[in-house]
């Protein structure tokens, strides 16, 4: 069976915005870019744990609201002088619905 899980409508997340999906092991932030691409990352900055879902989204990057670290939404890699990585998860849009991989529950319940 498919490992994709229907989470919500694309329009439930604003363009250049984000909302979280709660799981056992913390929140996953679901981002939507201006071009309607969707990314899923752990909602926690490796620096001081800032909630990335509350950051400003620009291009395919997000800026952490606490200390302005910038992360690639695609790789989770910190940009510029900062180093660190946020875990990313498979995500896609199909027929206007956001789909996440079931592994966000499986992997994270074990963790």
């Amino acid at each position: 069976m498919s490992n994709w899980m229907d989470i919500a409508a694309l329009d439930d997340v604003p363009q250049r915005g984000s909302r979280v999906v709660k799981t056992h092991a913390g929140c996953v932030a679901v981002f939507r870019t201006a071009q309607d691409e969707v990314y899923a990352l752990n909602n926690s900055c490796p620096h001081k744990g800032g909630p990335l879902s509350e950051g400003i989204v620009h291009g395919a990057f997000v800026t952490c609201p606490l200390h302005n670290w910038v992360f690639s939404l695609e790789t989770g890699q910190a940009q510029g002088a900062d180093s660190g990585r946020v875990e990313t998860h498979p995500a896609k849009v199909e027929n206007g619905r956001i789909l996440l991989d079931r592994s966000i529950i499986a992997a994270r319940t074990v963790a």
Binding site: M5, I7, A8, D12, V13, P14, R19, V20, V21, K22, T23, H24, C27, V30, I98, R102, I104, I105, A106, T109, V110
Partner: peptide, 15 residues
């Protein structure tokens, strides 16, 4: 509504 989580999977069992 935008202040709430998009979804809560905290109760879903791992498969």
């Amino acid at each position: 509504e935008s202040y709430q989580p998009l979804a809560s999977l905290a109760l879903e069992a791992a498969e």
